[in-house]
């Protein structure tokens, strides 16, 4: 029993249920809401099935037409409508709107995927700081970061489960996802789209720095990569 409870734990370095940013947090909340609703509906369906099987005639008070209208239309339509509106509102909030997020402007980075590594570009960093980091993405904590993905070979998918949803890196396209890490720290990232034999090992790390130290640390990291 104790082990079952331990299993039910939701933590982990790549767990979507251990959110460390507003996007992942919102989605985790959506999940818990849906889970509660789903469990309730599941119990209801099983109870109805048990009722009609084990207590013949118990459900015959409601006409057959009544069963179909109430259960087939009356029950699902309001639930689905409410859920859909909730999810679409959330989806709108998560979009990388041009007006930016709180705490000033948005930081823009590029994630370039290839078999089997991630290369991160920082186009906004001032002059003389061209360069990339390999398999480590540096971001400031507490600020919105727009990650734009690219790929020059096959399709990959950029995913940092504790920060938010994933975005594909498709050759010929460069979509953007907005993420934010609430606190400084290390967050594990994965390639989510099957991209060949090295798919499993295409992990990367997101390093969120205190905002004040971000530029300095990023420059140091870039210089370090250069030196290698």
């Amino acid at each position: 029993m104790a082990s079952t409870l331990a299993l039910a734990g939701c933590g982990g370095p790549v767990s979507t249920l251990d959110p460390a940013g507003p996007a992942a947090d919102a989605i985790a909340r959506l999940w818990w809401v849906m889970l509660i609703g789903a469990v309730a509906l599941f119990i209801l369906m099983m109870a109805l099935f048990g009722l009609v099987m084990l207590r013949p005639g118990a459900g015959s008070g409601l006409s057959r037409r009544g069963w179909i209208l109430a259960g087939g239309l009356g029950m699902p339509l309001p639930i689905l409508t409410a859920l859909l509106i909730y999810a679409l509102i959330q989806g709108e909030r998560l979009l990388p709107h041009p007006d930016g997020g709180p705490n000033g402007g948005v930081v823009r980075v590029e994630a370039v995927a290839r078999q089997f590594a991630w290369e991160f570009h920082y186009p906004e960093l001032g002059a003389g700081a061209a360069g990339t980091t390999l398999n480590v993405l540096h971001i400031p904590a507490g600020r919105a970061v727009d990650v734009t993905t690219r790929s020059d070979d096959v399709i990959h998918s950029f995913w940092v489960p504790r920060l938010g949803g994933k975005i594909d890196a498709t050759p010929g396209h460069s979509p953007t996802i907005r993420l934010r890490a609430d606190r400084p720290g290390l967050y594990a990232g994965l390639c989510a789209e099957y991209c060949g034999t090295g798919h499993r090992d295409m992990g990367f790390t997101v390093e969120a720095h205190p905002p004040a130290l971000y530029e300095q640390r990023l420059r140091a990291a870039l210089a370090g990569e250069e030196a290698q």
Partner: peptide, 25 residues
């Protein structure tokens, strides 16, 4: 999401059939 509705209609048609019948296992 909407595709759940015709699914539910079928499920409740089955439940209605059972509820008005004499189900045997």
């Amino acid at each position: 999401a909407l595709v759940a509705v015709p699914t539910a209609v079928q499920f409740f048609a089955w439940l209605a059939t059972l509820s008005h019948g004499r189900p045997r296992f």
